[in-house]
Design a binder for these strands. Structure first.
Lengths: 229, 229
DNA sequence: AGATTTGTGTCGAGTTCTCGACAGTCTGCC
DNA sequence: GGCAGACTGTCGAGAACTCGACACAAATCT
């Protein structure tokens, strides 16, 4: 599996970035950026999920968007230098390619194809964010729980996700007890199985029937704007 | 009052767009874009507020971001042609300058200053969106009501906002009866006065004390990234 | 093996908000 | 002036979620 943005680049354009890419493994929980950090490195996940989290004054943190193999973390820094607006942490263990923002900026200056996919990615990520604004205001925790699992499942190659209910509660911005209750009903319906720190996705179709439209909307936005898988 | 982006452009750069700007009045409620519409025109408000709304499948609509004199509507279309992701409607009567996306794109190609402010604006708008994701998940209707009023107040020159509770309920994604209840407590505390279709802001400091941190966070993001008023 | 830490199950009181209903009021239109 | 339509006030049942508390279970450490 390979990052979809990189994979879709024509050879000549890939040649501008390929030599500067470093391949790394990102372990779960690794902190890549905090708000205010200068974005000096751009990460292209090959699989797995990176979460963008908005930090609140009380120390809380809630997920505001995610990055997977269809995109990249810090991509806007290729246009011009900037600071991170959010915290970025590695959600699932992740192979990735990274490149310095400076090198990517040079490629951006030379390649229309690279400028185009960065522009498209920015738009897709914005679309993701505004859909989440609506989702968080309108939809139940149950629907959002399913959406989160499905989005994660799309980006990994297994049916097993390592996460604690406590952590997911933070992501969704709800109480841990609420997550426990939702997880129980999903397990009773046979859509998932879970144990301490692990969730298995058993019946994707079941989750899809229970999530809100936002899952599909965001997914289609990415499919429309960015290279297919 | 003048759009802050345009006002901050050096004369030489302004010369690239000035001749193509048309000044217009936008009446309240006017629909500028719906999802999927090609963005052929960019609007620079001199005062007033334009709302970006995410449409849901059931016909509902909820505000996901706002545009005021510190920014512009459709600005990303200056980079390359695209379709709107959301509905854009005029929230308060609004003087504005408009320019065709094609003309603005030509200015974008020639002027580094224009490219820079468009890039900054995109980032600020993204910051606005991700803060709203968190806000909608974590904060009470009361706090969000105050935030909405304050954000609006920043962008108009009067203490009077024309809006119905029904409409505001849609913006916030809550029931109209909830808005009524919140409005009543704010009036009892002397922060606002309202009557059919009109809200007067009486005590800004009171509203500021009651809103969430998100108001200040978004405002500071704009101040940091874009030209001051 | 025992001790400690971390994650989960459950309970219950309390709050916030939903959702439907209906009456009353204001505004503009004919 | 009267009518129609749009906006607001209020009520009440019920659902969703919060928040604190505590017991229990699984993983980790020594």
């Amino acid at each position: 599996m390979q990052n979809r943005l990189l994979a879709a680049l024509p050879p000549a354009d890939y040649g501008l970035v390929g030599p500067y890419l470093t391949h790394i493994d990102l372990e779960r929980g690794r902190l890549l950026y905090d708000p205010g950090d200068p974005i000096d490195t751009v990460y292209f996940p090959h699989d797995g999920v990176i979460s963008l989290m908005t930090l609140m004054e009380n120390g809380g943190a809630i997920e505001s968007a995610t990055i997977g193999p269809e995109g990249a973390l810090g991509l806007m820094a290729a246009v011009s230098p900037r600071a991170s607006l959010s915290r970025a942490i590695v959600q699932t263990p992740c192979r990735a390619a990274r490149i310095s923002a400076v090198q990517l900026h040079e490629a951006w200056e030379k390649s229309p194809a690279i400028r185009k996919f960065i522009d498209r990615h920015t738009e897709a990520l914005f679309g993701h964010a505004i859909q989440s604004v609506a989702c968080n205001a309108l939809h139940s925790v149950e629907a959002r729980f399913c959406r989160w699992l499905l989005t994660c499942h799309d980006r990994i190659s297994t049916n097993t996700v390592a996460l604690t209910q406590e952590f997911l509660a933070d992501m969704l911005g709800v109480q841990r007890t609420t997550v426990t209750a939702v997880a129980r009903t999903l397990q009773e319906r046979g859509y998932i199985r879970y144990r301490r720190g692990v969730v298995d996705i058993v019946d994707r179709a079941g989750l899809e029937a229970m999530t809100c439209e936002c899952y599909g909307v965001v997914r289609r936005t990415y499919d429309r704007l960015l290279p297919g898988s």
